[in-house]
Write a protein that binds this DNA or RNA. Structure first.
Length: 652
RNA sequence: GGCGACGUAGCUCAGUUGGUUAGAGCGAACGGUUCAUACCCGUUAGGUCAUCAGUUCAAGUCUGAUCGUCGCUACCA
């Protein structure tokens, strides 16, 4: 069995349908997959859904559906939408499938046997009302993301010895410069690992959802540990005989957000711990940020690619299939690589007009018309311009190079440049002028035009498959099926009769659309204006840096009496204080250990910010703060009232 | 607080190891053309490369500071 070219997308959370972000990743990988197939490679292109997150439970509950049914539905939706979006995946893996569970168990056991898994106490914040564990970073102002109270809980769990792989991963990155792209992301990963990796807790107390441990049904695997394994499972690991043909993957695609922490550290570590090969390349591309004003009825920040295509089809009159291609093309040519790219619907429609309607669509149209007018509809018997053959031969090389390097945007630009080249070629040669007298050159020009068009077909095929097939169809020629065909003269067969032109991408009336936009977004603008006004009122520039008194009034300052002070265990800066502020006692952690003895503080009065949101420091809750002046050396000097005050007195 | 990224034309973005007059596409203006989807081709306008200072013969590029946006992180109270 020959080695396959494996391309992966992340598996996506099932609490929402595909949006512009997931669609971008998926589309870019699809272009690569389609291209590699075109070159004759056997491709294993996989995507899927991550269904074991605890959040799924809540989402299902909200939807009023049994959890299993809920995830089934969403997984179906994903597949439907991806198919509509022409994603040519070979495998769609769901982490609720038995094959995935089997893989997770196997990998866990292998890593355990290899000595990289151990049992220890897991401590974390536990949200009782939603029965969910939260990481420290998940907490919002000391509460769960839903605003529920959390409490500190510790329980026995399994840990993965991630810390053992700091150096091995760094070494691997160094030895394989293309392992992580782009460069700036690679640097981020390196500096992240250099900060030190902590072992990760890979099991949780079961909430009734997730993959239960084989010998302990009260526990489930941490979702990221389970999810990453899907890549292996999709390749047939561990039991299928041919999994080594598919793994390691050639390219693992993802957005930059899940690269550093998971794919570039935890995942390689897991593979190393199991003595499995690492993927050849991971790409953490930037985001397609949503900005500007929205023309369509899409709500909020979620622009569904399929909805966008539907809307484009409505307003432009182009077929739905080609409208999907337009979205695909846009995402391809705007691919965010190192940096994020701003997406606006206005920009999308402008690009549709300039690139697809005016350039590519129009050049097909004028070529066909000319072949009909000047050559009775048949490709004349003439030599293709050597200039064109040269040009295409270069483009072909570059195009392949770019796709192999995952630069879908640059590849798309080559295609667009071919169309520009052809437009310029036509203008320079002016076939309509040549046609006025008998001319051999006219025939060569006409055949060259068709030849160029066919190469554009070849270049756009992986990006916008139906656009390619329509080009072939209007020329009444068999569609390109292999990359070898690109650049050959056989693409424009002599004496072949072409079909009649029909606009693929009808031009949009952007001015008209802008008018509509203005009306539809009047409301939004009003709100925006109001907001701006409010900001201006408070800060009109002349008062830069000054605040309104009402902002100050929001801060509740009280005289508090320190009733208890002690060192905080494990901290060399913080003291733990209990401060009476009149109506309540508050635990406050203060970073004043280097200046104050705890004993000397007891009984002292201080100024306390009484309505500060609690925060957790060093694992302990701090419910307020003491006012202190900053000394020359940067240390804190507490502020005391000038005379003994009643505890709880207001400070103004 | 720490680490990091970013700030380049009206808009969206390129600018390799510092090296002439800072680029592209879109948009705009003007001209040309008529095969074409009011399209295409050409020309032009438009930039204190966030600000300030420094290194250098030479800085968008290197260094430091400042401002702004964003991300991660912390023993920030």
């Amino acid at each position: 069995m020959s080695k396959k070219y494996t391309i992966t997308t992340p598996i996506y959370y099932v609490n929402s349908v595909p949006h512009i972000g997931t669609a971008t990743t998926t589309l870019l990988s699809d272009v690569q997959a389609r291209f590699q197939r075109l070159t004759g490679k056997e491709v294993h292109f996989m995507t899927g859904t991550d269904e074991n997150a605890i959040k799924v439970l809540e989402a299902a509950e909200k939807a009023g559906k049994p959890t299993l049914e809920f995830v089934d539905n969403i997984a179906d939706d994903f597949q439907k939408i991806w198919k509509e979006f022409k994603i040519s995946f070979d495998d769609f893996i769901r982490t609720t499938e038995p094959r995935h569970h089997k893989g997770v168990y196997r990998l866990f056991n292998i890593i355990k046997e290899n000595g990289y898994i151990y049992q220890d106490k897991y401590e974390g914040w536990y949200d009782v009302s939603s029965e969910t564990f939260y990481k420290e970073s998940d907490l919002v102002d000391g509460k769960s993301p839903d605003g529920n109270e959390v409490r500190w809980v510790s329980e026995e769990n399994w840990f993965f010895k991630l810390s053992a792989f700091e150096q091995p991963i760094l070494d691997h990155i160094k030895k394989n410069p293309d392992f992580i792209v782009p460069e700036n992301r690679k640097n981020e990963v390196i500096s992240f690992i250099n900060q030190g990796l902590r072992d990760v807790c890979i099991t949780r107390k079961s909430q009734g959802w997730g993959i239960q441990l084989e010998d302990d049904s009260a526990k489930v695997f941490y979702v990221w540990f389970d999810a990453l394994i899907n890549y292996l499972v999709s390749c047939g690991w561990p039991d299928s005989a041919d999994w080594t043909d598919k793994w390691p993957a050639a390219t693992q695609w993802m957005g930059k957000d899940i690269l550093t922490r998971f794919h570039a550290t935890m995942w390689p570590a897991m593979l190393m711990a199991a003595k499995l090969p690492l993927p050849k390349q991971m790409i953490g591309h930037g985001w397609l940020l949503i900005g500007g004003e929205k023309i369509s009825k899409s709500k909020g920040n979620v622009v569904a690619p399929v909805e966008l295509a539907k809307y484009l089809s409505e307003v432009s009159g182009c077929s739905y299939l080609l409208a999907i291609d337009a979205v695909r093309y846009y995402m391809a040519i705007c691919m965010p690589f190192e940096n994020d790219v701003v997406f606006t619907e206005e920009d999308f429609f402008a690009r549709y007009n300039s690139d697809l309607a005016n350039d590519i669509g129009n050049v097909l149209n004028r070529t066909l018309t000319m072949v009909h007018k000047f050559s009775e509809g048949t490709i004349p018997d003439a030599k293709i311009d050597a200039e064109a053959i040269d040009y295409i031969s270069n483009c072909k090389k570059e195009y392949q190079h770019h796709i192999d390097n995952s630069r879908i945007d640059l590849a798309a630009k080559i295609m667009l440049n071919c169309s520009r080249w052809l437009n310029k070629y036509i203008d320079t040669k002016a076939p309509w002028a040549l046609a006025k007298e008998v001319s051999i050159e006219l025939n060569a020009v006409l055949r060259t035009m068709v030849y160029m068009l066919r190469n554009i077909e070849g270049f756009i095929l992986s990006i916008a498959p139906d656009t390619a097939s329509i080009i072939a169809k209007q020329l009444k020629l068999d569609a390109i099926k292999n990359w070898n065909e690109v650049g050959t003269e056989a693409l424009a067969p002599i004496n072949h009769t072409v079909g009649s032109p029909e606009p693929m991408f009808p031009r949009l009336d952007l001015k008209e659309m802008k008018k509509n936009l203005k009306e539809s977004s009047k409301e939004d603008k009003k709100i925006e204006k109001q907001n701006k006004k409010d900001v201006k009122k408070e800060d009109d520039g002349s008062n830069a840096g000054l605040i309104d008194i009402k902002h100050f009034a929001e801060v509740k300052l009280r005289i508090g009496t320190i009733e208890l002070a002690e060192d905080l265990e494990g901290s060399d800066k913080l003291l733990r204080l209990e401060v009476n502020v009149g109506d309540a006692k508050k635990q406050i952690l203060a970073g004043i250990k280097n200046k104050y003895n705890p004993e000397a503080l007891i009984g002292k009065q201080v100024v306390v910010v009484a309505n500060l949101k609690p925060a957790k420091l060093r694992g302990h809750l701090s419910e307020g703060m003491l006012l202190a002046a900053t000394d020359k050396d940067g240390s804190a000097v507490l502020i005391h009232p000038a005379k003994e005050m009643e505890t709880g007195s207001e400070v103004r």
